[in-house]
Amino acid sequence: MEKNYEYPLDLDWQKDELVDVVQLWRLVELAYEKGVEREKFLTQYALFKKVVPSKGEEKRWGNKFEDASGYSLYQVVKTAKASNKKIIRL
């Protein structure tokens, strides 16, 4: 599926932080489109949480991403934390 939206990003983030957030958005997409390794997702989510530590900010960025893409960060995180499967798919 070709994406016709932009990832929500804060241009004040450092380059490595931007990379971490973009990687998370890619993995959220993958969780919906093909499936993603649970451990890989959780590792990337931990890096995202270093950039966006507060729950409120996480929700705000997650909502921006969901509005743009239709994919829910919250649902992928919830599924990854609740599952013990190697691959998670929504």
Rank of each mutant, 00 (worst) to 15 (best):
E17L: 10
V76Y: 03
L11Y: 11
G56R: 11
A68G: 03
V52E: 02
L24E: 07
Y74Q: 12
Y32V: 00
E57P: 00
Y74T: 08
K50I: 02
S72T: 08
V51R: 03
S54Y: 08
E57S: 14
G35D: 02
Y7P: 06
V28P: 07
F41C: 10
D20A: 15
Q14E: 15
K50Y: 01
S72E: 07
P8H: 10
E37I: 04
L73I: 04
Y71S: 05
G62I: 04
F65R: 00
Y71T: 01
S54P: 01
E37L: 06
E29P: 03
R26D: 14
Q14T: 11
E6P: 06
K50Q: 15
A31N: 06
P8Y: 08
L30R: 14
E33W: 00
E37V: 12
D10I: 11
L47A: 14
V51Y: 04
Y71C: 09
D20N: 15
L73V: 12
L9G: 05
L27Y: 12
E66I: 01
E39A: 15
Q75E: 15
K49I: 02
V22P: 00
T43D: 14
Y7M: 03
T43A: 12
E29C: 11
K64M: 02
K59Y: 06
K64W: 01
E17R: 06
K59I: 07
V22M: 07
E39P: 00
V77S: 05
E29G: 13
E66M: 04
E6Q: 14
K49Q: 15
E37R: 13
V19L: 10
Q23I: 00
V52W: 10
S69F: 03
W61K: 03
Y32H: 09
G62Y: 03
L18E: 08
P53Q: 09
V22G: 00
F48M: 13
K34C: 04
V51Q: 04
E37F: 06
G35S: 05
G70A: 05
G70K: 09
K40N: 08
